[in-house]
């Protein structure tokens, strides 16, 4: 592994930048995601910073069932993210469509359109659960990076 790649990997592991995307959620998961960023839960202590644009983000946090109107735009936002990219599906709706599964305007879970790295169930997912998923994602990346660097 080149030094340049090592530095990039280190920065990525230490501070994953996230983008929040709402695919048609009821706001419940969205406020829990913001809750996780504010003082009581404070995931910024893991180096996580909320970013406004997909081009700066490593991890996309998605909430809500995928509505037909949003599906195309969602794919476009996902494509704008640089590689490697990860997607967290927050809440039962994002995982499977949840209570809205079968509604005429809902496609279903977000995995119908893009690959998902981690599913966080719950209606809404508690901030603790979101933090747990983020930590698990970081640990997993660390493990993988070690095996990659050994090669």
């Amino acid at each position: 592994m080149k030094l340049k790649d090592k530095i990039i990997l280190w920065s990525r592991l230490k501070s994953p930048w996230i983008i929040h995307f709402n695919t048609g959620a009821c706001n419940g998961c969205d406020i829990e995601i913001v809750d996780a960023l504010t003082p009581k839960y404070d995931i910024e202590r893991f180096g996580i910073v909320l970013k406004g644009t997909p081009r700066h983000a490593d991890v996309m946090i998605v909430s809500g069932p995928l509505t037909r109107q949003q599906a195309k735009r969602f794919k476009r936002i996902y494509d704008q993210m640089p590689n490697p990219k990860f997607v967290l599906a927050v809440g039962t709706c994002a995982c499977s469509g949840g209570v809205f599964d079968g509604c005429y305007s809902v496609v279903g879970g977000i995995d119908k359109v893009i690959p998902v790295s981690a599913y966080i169930p719950g209606c809404p997912a508690r901030p603790e659960a979101i933090i747990d998923a983020v930590v698990k994602l970081i640990t997993e990346l660390e493990k993988n990076s070690k095996t990659v660097s050994k090669r």
Partner: peptide, 14 residues
């Protein structure tokens, strides 16, 4: 508007 439309009113009838 319309990005968040899910069809709750129709679903409520079922």
């Amino acid at each position: 508007l319309g990005y968040n439309h899910r069809g709750v009113e129709k679903a409520a009838e079922n």
